[in-house]
Amino acid sequence: MADTVQFDLVSPERKLASMVATEVQIPGADGDLTAMAGHEPTILSLRPGFLTVKGAAGEEQFVVTGGFAELSADTISVLAEIALPRAEVTPEVLAELVSTATQAHEAAEVDAHHETQKLLADLVHIAEHLGFDAHL
C-alpha cells in the first residue's frame, strides 16, 4: 500500500490545491478526521474549520466553511462551500463571513436556529484560533 494520496481542494470560485499528501486533517460535521492512504471509501460533510494537508513540501492549512469530502484508498477530494488559504483569512474576511452567518441565523426558521448558531460558533472559534477579535 502506498503511503500517499492525491489531494484536491476546490471551491465554487477556484481550485485551491492539487497535491500528493501523506495525511489530511478534515473538519467533519460529525467530528474531525485524519485521512491517509488506504482509507475506506467515505463521504462526509464538512463544518467550518481548519483543513490541514501534510505532504513532502510541508504543511498547508485552509479555512473551509462547509461542503463535502470524498475519501478513498488513494484520493481525497474536497468540495468546499468557501475555502481560503489560511494566509488569506483576515479579520475583514471573517467579519464578512460572520455577518452573512448572522443574517442567515436571524432569517432562519426556529427549527434551523441550532444549525445557524453552530455555524456562528464555529466562525468565532476560527477567529479566536487565528488571534482575531472573536466579536467581529
Rank of each mutant, 00 (worst) to 15 (best):
R14V: 07
R14D: 09
R14M: 08
K15A: 14
L16V: 06
L16A: 01
A17C: 12
A17G: 05
S18C: 13
M19K: 13
V20W: 09
A21H: 02
T22I: 12
T22V: 14
E23M: 02
E23H: 04
E23G: 06
V24W: 03
I26Q: 02
I26C: 07
I26N: 08
I26K: 04
P27E: 07
D30Y: 14
G31E: 03
L33W: 07
T34H: 04
A35L: 06
A35D: 05
M36G: 08
M36K: 09
M36C: 03
A37N: 05
P41K: 10
P41S: 07
T42E: 06
I43L: 15
L44Y: 06
L44D: 08
S45Y: 11
S45T: 11
S45M: 11
L46Y: 03
L46N: 07
R47Q: 14
R47C: 02
R47L: 09
P48E: 03
P48S: 05
G49S: 09
G49Q: 01
F50G: 00
L51Q: 01
T52Y: 03
T52G: 02
V53D: 01
V53T: 06
K54I: 02
G55A: 05
A56G: 10
A56T: 15
A56L: 13
A56C: 05
A57D: 15
A57W: 05
G58R: 03
E59F: 04
E59D: 10
E59S: 14
E59Y: 01
E60N: 15
Q61A: 10
Q61H: 08
F62W: 10
F62N: 03
F62Y: 12
V63R: 04
V64T: 08
V64K: 01
T65A: 05
T65E: 06
F68D: 11
A69S: 09
A69W: 01
E70C: 13
L71H: 07
L71N: 01
S72F: 05
S72G: 15
A73F: 08
A73D: 12
A73Q: 13
A73C: 13
D74M: 13
D74A: 15
D74F: 15
I76M: 11
I76T: 08
I76Y: 03
I76R: 00
I76N: 09
I76F: 02
S77N: 14
V78W: 07
V78H: 04
L79F: 11
L79P: 07
A80W: 06
E81W: 10
I82T: 13
I82M: 07
I82Q: 15
A83G: 14
A83K: 05
A83D: 11
L84S: 07
L84H: 08
L84R: 06
L84C: 05
P85A: 12
R86L: 15
R86K: 11
R86W: 02
A87N: 15
E88I: 07
P91D: 07
P91Y: 09
P91F: 09
L94Q: 00
E96R: 13
V98H: 00
S99T: 12
S99M: 02
T100R: 04
T100E: 02
T102D: 00
Q103I: 04
E106G: 00
A107E: 14
A108N: 03
A108F: 01
